[in-house]
Amino acid sequence: MNPALHDVASYHTHSKLYTRTAVILSIITAVEIALLYVPPLKPILVPLMTVMAIQKLAMVVGTFMHLGDDKNVFRLVFLAPMLMAFLMIYVMTLLVMPHFSPYGGGYVRLAAQRSYDERMGLLPAAAAAHKPARSVEEYEKLFADAKDHGAGEKVWGERCAACHRADGGGMAGLGPNMTDDCYLHGGKVHNIVSTVLNGIPGKAMVSFKGQITDEQIEQVSLYVRSLRGKNVADGKACEGEKVGN
């Protein structure tokens, strides 16, 4: 008896099971997409969708590919590498990646890439106009070492409060909240200096280059950075991307 040959006479069709599986797969996919439009679920969306994706995967592998009722050896040669693949994605994404700074280390030539983008005209002209004087790390260090933001606070009161509110909480239709964890243009001191230097094209946020000294721009930027996380009362809602520390 040859195991490679199929016995037609004693085969019973699975088409009903397949139809049922296809319907369930479609429903799960539809629900998955619909969930995106339910804002209150946002905090649990990622784990929820992960479970749903794994469920779909299990149904295709178990039912359509019949791995569930097939030989052990198939499970071994397929599921072991699949487990390793998921493990790799998990480790790389959630454990290693957060410690990997794109600006430090020698891993990626991001600087080279940036100049390429400038050459290709892919960066907005204004963004390339005035470069912050220091590197990203230098600014972060400056912030970490700074004890007193008095000078920056003064500039803020005179120049920025009109749009961003004196306590940094932001104003409807004007400047965003500086005391939450959200940024439209990046939350590193370097990003903030760049925003103040160049302004945001087409927005009320204008370039302060030349209006106040470069030193004042640096001081006020460090002050803005120090506001993060203060979450003042009735501040404007989150705009842009949440950043971690």
Binding site: M82, A85, M88
Partner: peptide
């Protein structure tokens, strides 16, 4: 099985 690692690497 080897394809799992192939796509796993690309996704990671």
């Amino acid at each position: 099985g080897s394809e799992c690692m192939f796509f796993g690497s690309l996704i990671a």
